[in-house]
Amino acid sequence: MTAEPAEAISPRPRAARGERPQFLAAPECEPLLAMVVALAAEVHRLEDRHERLLAALAEAGIALGPELRAGPGGAPRATALVGRVFRVLDEIAERALRGGDPAYAEIVDQLGRPERE
């Protein structure tokens, strides 16, 4: 038995008007970044679900070992996850502030020389 199909709602538009600005050198990079962001969000969603499940088990009186007890709540956990996934961006920020690293280059240069300065 097939029901009369409801009149389909047109799909929502996905692209805002105007050219999308490109910041990274290769045009392929930014869609990939968008995918990484979406995947990281999915990891958080699953972690969150997992925590809710553990909390429900604990509430139902099911004894959980300390290694399984629910951790910190939603927002701090999301912040911690973001910090781990996007760590390299903070590294880029730190390098930008530090500028070059002449002492490092100098010692590398000197290491193989027979004489010390």
Partner: peptide, 26 residues
Amino acid sequence: HPEEQALLDFAVAFKGFLRGPMRAAV
């Protein structure tokens, strides 16, 4: 739904991250 809220929490956390050391460096 809590699962949707988790995605929103992530978005807010990511925005907070981008207001941190990266923004300071820029």
